[in-house]
């Protein structure tokens, strides 16, 4: 079986093209909601919140959380909504008839989701610069972890898109599972300020490690050891990779 790299690149390009065409919805609206969070939580709470280790203010703590949240939501939404829209438009059958191997389809979607997630992350970071200077303590860690997180959420979106028959399902997963886990995973607060019992529960939240890891790259301190988080994030990404790979290979919910 020969690989079709240019074909996979074309699918990637089409996916990027898709979110670029509706850039107000896909790039500007996450930016606006993140700036709102910054205003609501940051500007109101900043003064009353104590500084964290290493003289990190609450705003400096919050901004990396918003960056991660933007990446997670957008990477997830990019692949999940693309698949569900394709099901709705009945263009999903194209995925089966074009000469791409399942793994090429998987990479094209995941990469496009990663590009959108990274764009939202970068735009969010830059847009907060006038209000707060967030340090960049460890750039390689930021790059590595943000790529892993975007890939993981791109894959997750792909899995949910393939599984879900309607927009309902996709939104239900986002509203009832992803958003609570993201909010409770330490986007807005440090897990270390929680009562011990809640800290233990939070340690079971896979997203808490992702959020902690990327934030460590910015502010230099973390709740969990960096190596633990890296292993955890790596394994999550791998599991999602295997799951979506299996779904595409077996034609799960797409092939009758």
């Amino acid at each position: 079986m020969k690989s079709n790299t240019y074909g996979a690149y074309t699918l990637f390009k089409k996916e990027v093209n898709r979110f670029k065409k509706v850039w107000v919805q896909t790039l500007v609206s996450p930016l606006v909601s993140n700036l709102l969070f910054l205003a609501v939580f940051g500007l109101s709470l900043n003064r009353s919140m104590p500084e964290l280790d290493g003289g990190v203010t609450y705003l400096q703590f919050l901004v990396p959380g918003l960056v991660i949240m933007g990446m997670m939501n957008n990477a997830y939404q990019n692949s999940s909504s693309s698949i569900v829209i394709a099901k709705y438009n009945q263009t999903i059958s194209d995925l089966l008839t074009i000469p791409l191997r399942p793994i090429e389809v998987q990479y094209a979607y995941t990469l496009a989701a990663t590009v959108r997630g990274l764009m939202v992350g970068i735009v969010t970071y830059i847009s907060t610069l006038p209000f707060v200077q967030v340090p960049i303590k460890n750039l390689p860690l930021i790059l590595l972890s943000s790529i892993l997180i975007n890939v993981a959420f791109g894959l997750l979106g792909l899995a949910v898109g393939i599984w879900g028959k309607e927009f309902d399902r996709m939104a239900a997963i986002q509203n009832f599972i992803l958003t609570p886990l993201i909010y409770l995973g330490g986007v807005f607060y440090s897990l270390s300020v929680l009562p011990e019992s809640f800290q233990k529960i939070s340690a079971l939240n896979p997203f808490a490690y992702m959020i902690d890891l990327l934030r460590a790259g910015f502010i230099g301190t973390s709740t969990f050891p960096i190596s633990t988080s890296l292993i955890f994030v790596g394994i999550t990404t791998l599991v999602l990779h295997l799951l979506t790979g299996w779904m595409l290979r077996t034609g799960y919910r797409i092939q009758s």
Binding site: Y9, I98, P99
Partner: peptide
Amino acid sequence: PFLTVQQTLEFQSGYYG
């Protein structure tokens, strides 16, 4: 629905390398 006739065929060609 986002694509023109020309783009539809260009992407389709691309999928085939």
